[in-house]
């Protein structure tokens, strides 16, 4: 038996503190404090409300993406589903349909998009990265088929108001309230239910999960459908928030979503991560984008920052692990021990 010599009681609590998601939370506090001192408008309630609202779609999709990445899959087509959803809303509204009919229809189309992704991954055994790069282009293309390069506006105010107004008495916009509710549900599902346990097992060791009677394919299919349904609904919110339906709405949004999820400490290889970390990651990205915008930094630079965060959040845990490994080696615990 190899006794674990590296974690005493003190070492344990120190390691707990040094967990990635906790670090991101701390970083978030620093960015917030920095923003307050660095920019006069930043702490303004209206600005914070706007910053939160501006995050809505990213935040919502990040919840579903977290479940996928924990199960070692990914969906790059979410922003295209959002665009397709927006284009459908525009086209059907233009054709005189009622919003109350359009929304359920769009959600069903979202579910179909997810079904295509999920079936390609689970039935044909294709890697989700490749499948969803393909459907990313496919769904965006469909969005242009539906709406061309037109922009449709003039949606009823009762709906556009819902997308931007705050819940009365708070500075929290309705979509953010929706996020809070869904985040609570997702947190429970991921961390406290058998379904969540299954996701971690699938992500960490898919064969062992299969051998333990977990219905791996069915669960993955559900995750892809959920991700696309959420993305489609986020497309509705996006359309009403900007009051404009366009086929290119939300393009590139998937990068911000994945950046937030990885920044939140979810392992891209699956099996590790917390929802708390992802929420911290989403807020961090949102605040940084807001700060850059307030300081009139161009969108190109904003894109560069998002990209850098993505790279950093992928690299850093590996570096930390590599350094730890080197410091520990050789110990009994880190060597592969065929005979114990």
């Amino acid at each position: 038996m190899a006794p674990d010599v590296t974690t005493g009681a003190l070492g344990g609590s120190l390691q707990r503190f040094l967990r990635w998601d906790v670090l991101v939370g701390v970083l978030l506090v620093f960015v917030f404090a920095g923003g307050l001192t660095g920019s006069p408008q930043f702490g303004n309630i209206d600005n914070l409300s706007f910053a939160l609202g501006d995050l809505g779609e990213i935040a919502l999709i990040a919840l579903a993406m977290t479940l996928l990445v924990v199960a070692a899959e990914v969906d790059l087509s979410v922003a295209s589903v959002l665009g397709l959803s927006s284009a459908l809303v525009g086209n059907l509204w233009d054709a005189g349909w009622a919003i109350e009919t359009i929304i359920p229809l769009v959600v069903v189309v979202g579910a179909l998009c997810g079904l295509v992704n999920g079936l390609l991954v689970t039935r044909l055994g294709l890697p989700s990265l490749a499948v969803t790069i393909g459907t990313m282009a496919l769904y965006r293309g469909l969005a242009y088929v539906v709406l061309g390069d037109r922009a449709v506006a003039g949606f009823p105010q009762q709906f556009t108001d819902l997308a931007v107004n705050d819940v009365p008495g708070t500075f929290i916009p309705y979509p953010v309230m929706l996020f809070v509710a869904l985040a609570a549900v997702t947190g429970v599902v991921l961390h406290a239910t058998g379904f969540g346990r299954s996701l971690f097992a699938i992500g960490a060791q898919v064969e062992a999960a299969h051998f333990a009677g977990i219905r791996v394919k069915r669960i993955k299919l559900i995750l892809f459908v959920v991700a696309s349904v959420v993305a489609a609904f986020a497309g509705v919110i996006y359309t009403f928030r900007y009051g404009s339906a366009r086929a290119d709405n939300g393009s590139g949004l998937e990068m911000a979503v994945i950046a937030a999820v990885l920044l939140g400490g979810v392992d891209f290889d699956g099996g590790k991560g917390t929802l708390g970390g992802v929420i911290a990651g989403v807020l961090l990205i949102g605040l940084l984008r807001n700060l850059l915008m307030l300081n009139d930094v161009s969108t190109e630079i904003q894109s560069i920052v998002t990209g850098l965060l993505l790279v950093i959040s992928v690299i850093t845990p590996r570096l930390v692990a590599a350094v730890r490994q080197r410091r520990r080696t050789p110990t009994l615990t880190t060597q592969p021990t065929p005979e114990g």
Binding site: R197, F200, Q205, A208, A209, A212, G213, K272
Partner: peptide
């Protein structure tokens, strides 16, 4: 590969068949 999720805890592994 098949019996255990190596990076998960003893209790999680034993619990996996009884969710």
């Amino acid at each position: 590969q098949q019996g255990l999720v190596m990076e998960q805890s003893i209790e999680r592994n034993i619990g996996l068949t009884g969710l």
